[in-house]
């Protein structure tokens, strides 16, 4: 069983929902990413989602765009991100790590080489925002060969036929984007999200994570009531942005928000 599947199985066993925080690797400085990853695990994260900085992040709202720009001022590359995960794995071989990013850095490295290096670094899943499965045959095959989970997005504009296609192409979990828009956008409609998650559940045995628009403990708990996992990104990155003067403050602020979410999700 993959680390991601194991994580969902254990959560189901314990009657809790999975919490997946996102940060951009290298934001605000490369030296801090691994410390922050450990701090998030300590604060109750089950799976870590690590953004690979890209110069043209088309699906991101302003908060994550700026995080990627901060990382890129330090020339953080895909190789650097893999190194960060290697370092993280020296102390944590249990928490799954998912890379989230755009295709071009992977394309330049080559799919097969990327997959083998990612597997060796201890990466469990990859979500490539601008790669639909129709364009991803070689990519999927390369990741499959290294037992890395392929996570695809399902959105409010996805019809049921495509939902089935995307679920079949996915492994580990399916990521439902809660709203039309970019990351960090408006509040989500939990009722509508719940309906869509039920539709996806009818199509696949994979767990469903929900992201986009989850801002605080309340929205995390509300989404946890209808989904298997809660993904939180911009709200955490905003904590980084607001506390840039001190590494210590960033760790504390991120951990505090995650702990609140964890408590609210577990108290449902």
């Amino acid at each position: 069983m993959s680390r991601i599947a194991g994580c969902f199985a254990a959560a189901r066993e314990a009657g809790r929902k999975v919490l997946i925080p996102y940060i951009t690797a290298g934001d605000p400085v490369p030296e801090q990413t691994v410390t922050l990853m450990h701090a998030m695990v300590d604060a109750g994260a089950d799976i870590l989602e690590l953004g690979v900085p890209f110069s043209d992040p088309m699906a991101e709202g302003p908060v994550i765009q700026k995080a990627m720009e901060r990382a890129l001022t330090h020339q953080v590359t895909l190789d650097d991100v893999l190194d960060m995960v290697r370092t993280f794995r020296q102390q944590d071989d249990r928490t799954p790590v998912v890379l989230m990013g755009y295709l071009n850095p992977i394309e330049v490295k080559g799919y097969a080489r990327f997959a083998s290096e990612a597997a060796e670094a201890g990466i469990d899943g990859v979500l490539t925002v601008d790669l639909p499965p129709e364009e991803g045959e070689d990519y999927i095959r390369s990741l499959e060969a290294q037992d890395i989970d392929r996570i695809f997005l399902i959105s409010p504009t996805t019809d049921e036929k495509r939902m089935a296609t995307l679920s079949r192409a996915s492994s580990g979990f399916v990521y439902y984007v809660s709203l039309k828009g970019v990351t960090g956008a408006a509040n989500i409609d939990t009722k509508a999200v719940g309906d869509r998650v039920s539709t996806i559940h009818a199509l696949t045995d994979l767990p469903v994570g929900v992201g986009f628009g989850i801002k605080d403990a309340n929205s995390a708990a509300a989404v946890a009531a209808v989904a298997d996992a809660v993904v939180v990104g911009s709200a955490l990155v905003r904590q980084i942005e607001a506390n840039m003067t001190s590494a210590e403050k960033i760790n504390q602020a991120v951990a505090a928000l995650l702990s609140d979410m964890r408590r609210a999700m577990d108290a449902r």
Partner: peptide, 20 residues
Amino acid sequence: ARGHFGPYGGQFVAETLMGP
């Protein structure tokens, strides 16, 4: 039919845009 000129072209977008 899917917009490919040899290896080029295609549809490399986030899922929300695939329907539109």
